Simulated assay, not measured.
Amino acid sequence: MKSKPRHILFFFTYLWLFSCKESSLSSNDSLLALIPLLGASANASVCPKSSTLPSDIFLANTVVSASANVSGFSDPKKAINGVCGAGELAGSLDVYALETTGAGATMVLSWGGRTVKNVPDSIDLIIYDNSFRISGDTNTYAMDPSVIQVSRDGSIYCGFNPSYTAGNINLLTSWTKFGGLRPVFYNMTTNPLSNEDLFISTGIPFLLGGGDGFDLDDLDPNDPNDVNCDTTAANDIKTNGFKFVKITSASNVINPATSTNFPWPPGSYNGSDIDGVVARELQ
């Protein structure tokens, strides 16, 4: 599924394949092995329990624009009401789903007028979606690639020049500088972490709280999909920070390597599923 229908499809297909394939495991062992999957699925629906957000988490808290209308996932407040990750094997259902193309494929969030700083030698923001692993290969995920751009004034947007390597569309290594790739471990209800914790690298291509991190120093004014961005605008953001973040389903963005839109993982009836965005520091 991605959103709900795809998560359910992948989840129960995973269970069916696991239970049907030949194995030396006893039935008790098989049941024990499935418990983490069941727990992860359950965790997807228990968050948030409170309307009060953690005060130390610098969440984007304002929906600037959002026009998607995906049945069951059309409330844009789900993108600012806290991060509700369900771990490696399941995705949160507390999300706002973008569409695959058109105006509904994009949303813009802000921090209510505050500015996200560029912290030296650090990731500056994290995008949380609801990707999850779909095979024994830790590099294979049901993902929602999204193109991320930031702006100081809401009109000039600079991005990170993402790239896709043709091949297995579900391989994490096929996608570079996209949001919506990695699972989310942070859950404000069942796995609370501090803002500082969220930006800790685990030594592999994952952050402690999961999600996809972006460093403002990596902004590329040569990204062909940027809006009015040039070296001056990119350097202004690097020096002074940004106020707006734009998230767009990759399927609605031109891949400069092919002059066609980026591909979209099969089995999904909607675009990216936004669980939240967190900044490292605000001013």
Results as ranks from 00 to 15, higher is better:
Asn168Arg: 12
Gly211Val: 01
Asp217Glu: 13
Leu172Phe: 14
Glu196Arg: 04
Ser135Lys: 03
Leu172Thr: 09
Leu171Ile: 01
Ala166His: 06
Pro120Asp: 11
Gly136Arg: 05
Phe185Arg: 13
Pro120Trp: 02
Gly136Thr: 11
Gly210Lys: 14
Ile134Ser: 12
Val147Gln: 03
Asp223Glu: 07
Pro120Tyr: 01
Asn222Met: 13
Asp226Trp: 02
Ile126Ser: 05
Gly179Thr: 02
Leu207Gln: 07
Ser131His: 06
Val147Lys: 12
Phe160Pro: 06
Asp153Val: 06
Leu171Cys: 00
Phe214His: 05
Leu208Thr: 04
Asp121Met: 02
Asn222Pro: 00
Asp197Cys: 05
Val227Trp: 03
Ala166Ile: 14
Ser131Met: 08
Leu207Ser: 01
Ser194Trp: 03
Gly180Met: 06
Pro120Asn: 10
Asp220Tyr: 07
Asp197Gln: 00
Phe178His: 03
Glu196Pro: 00
Asp223Ile: 12
Gly167Pro: 11
Gly210His: 11
Asn228Gly: 00
Asp212His: 10
Thr176Gln: 13
Gly167Gln: 12
Pro221Gln: 07
Ile134Pro: 10
Ile127Arg: 01
Asn161Ala: 15
Ile148Val: 15
Arg133Gly: 00
Ala142Leu: 14
Val150Pro: 10
Gly209Phe: 08
Phe214Leu: 03
Leu208Pro: 00
Asn130Glu: 13
Leu208Phe: 11
Thr176Pro: 00
Gly209Pro: 08
Leu193Thr: 02
Gly154Val: 13
Gly203Ala: 06
Gly179Asp: 01
Ile134His: 04
Val147Met: 08
Asp124Arg: 00
Thr189Gln: 08
Phe206Tyr: 14
Asn187Trp: 03
Pro205Lys: 04
Asn170Glu: 14
Asp218Ile: 02
Tyr164Phe: 15
Pro192Thr: 14
Thr165Arg: 10
Asn225Leu: 06
Phe185Gln: 09
Gly136Trp: 01
Ile123His: 03
Tyr157Gln: 09
Phe178Thr: 06
Phe132Thr: 05
Gly159Val: 06
Thr165Cys: 08
Asn195Pro: 01
